[in-house]
Design a protein around this nucleic acid. Structure first.
Lengths: 209, 209
DNA sequence: TCAAGATGTGAATAGTGGTTCACTTCTTTG
DNA sequence: CAAAGAAGTGAACCACTATTCACATCTTGA
């Protein structure tokens, strides 16, 4: 009984672990999951391959954590944007959430695409499902409020919210996106927000503009 | 000069080639691109691996053709549905196209997902891009008609069409889809069509229902 | 039937990338 | 400092697959 982990070693361990997840996230942001081999992660993190395996039992485990961290950030940002004015009309709350989502996705297109759609190991896929479900649930909740208050037309909020998630993903980071070929990203946001506002079905009586 | 290909041999060659592409498509429909190894394709087609390479120079070449064929079918079906009544209101033409798209996607969820989103070799990705673009362009054309006639609100038709493609894909075959977990597929179509009709922005004056 | 060429075969090859492990280095405690 | 154990290392290992190629078989025209 001559060795016990101490604050110093634990801090160092956490620091190395952080370097590894950061390296993995950066590689995904640059070239997607396929571009993020274990050897490349290790090289960028400045450690040996074996060290990565001291911290994560397998590649799926590593990337599940990376996905979890990255997507949590995104979901929190959108939730915050959509809840800034909890009593605003649903259409404005959706607009705020969508705009935040879109703007952040555009800042890191490749990472956003990897988080949203790129196929990955089943373990990572499970994280992604959580991610998309979180987005959807934020929207569902706003839609339900809007329907209850009579602001929005009667509709299936789960279908609407799912479709919105797909629409935003495609319009922002998908291959069809105007931003995919060098267009001005900012210019793509307003039409998308308009799309979403129309899609949630504001009752004509509530239209202000 | 003792051998020249004849009708009989050409027919046989075409038949084998067809067996190979069919086998490849079936494998994709069952387990996606990752599940479709060359050896598996050969086995299912009832030929040796080498034979596959007599017909296609490489795996990407084979699957590019498979994607091209499969997606052409889908695009044609949607175009036809949307053009059945060329003078109908845009909102009805969109509804007809979307419903056809959705219904067909549901019939072959895995294949539809592979065609729409699963990452593949760059050569195959190029085919997929064509595919999505074709869908988008069908919708863009209808939207332009509707905007010109005053039926639809002014909007960027490319963004709207891209977002619609994303929305349909997500709602029908994406991980969020209610149909992904054993829900009734038919029940998912009507809400989606409603979503799309709202999203294209029918001018209030034109609303009939 | 025979030669020429096309087509079919599948074991062997080669590239890729995740994972292991014997070994070294570092840190802590007595 | 010495022992114990944790952390770090990276070459070797292994599984998986696309691709090749020397050989066999089949088809055609003379």
């Amino acid at each position: 009984m001559a060795y016990r982990s101490t604050k110093r070693t634990e801090a160092r361990r956490a620091e190395v672990r952080g370097r590894i997840t950061t390296a993995a996230r950066e590689l995904i942001a640059e070239g997607g999951y396929v571009n993020a081999q274990m050897a490349a992660v290790a090289r960028r993190a400045g450690v040996a391959v074996g060290t990565v395996y001291r911290h994560f039992p397998s590649k799926p485990d590593l990337f599940a954590e990376v996905f979890r961290e990255a997507s949590q950030h995104e979901v929190d940002a959108m939730r915050e944007a959509a809840s800034e004015r909890p009593d605003a009309p649903a259409s404005e709350r959706v607009a705020a959430g969508v705009e935040t989502f879109a703007r952040r996705a555009l800042r890191g297109r490749r990472l956003a695409w990897a988080l949203l759609a790129e196929p990955v190991d089943p373990a990572v896929e499970a994280e992604r499902l959580e991610f998309r479900r979180s987005y959807r649930d934020i929207l569902v909740s706003i839609l339900q409020d809007g329907i209850a208050s009579g602001e929005l037309l009667a509709q299936d909020p789960v279908t609407t919210a799912s479709a919105l998630v797909g629409a935003i993903g495609e319009a922002m980071v998908g291959p069809l996106s105007p931003t995919a070929n060098g267009g001005d990203p900012e210019a793509a946001i307003a039409p998308l927000v308009n799309f979403c506002q129309r899609a949630i079905g504001t009752e004509p009586a509530h239209v202000h503009a």
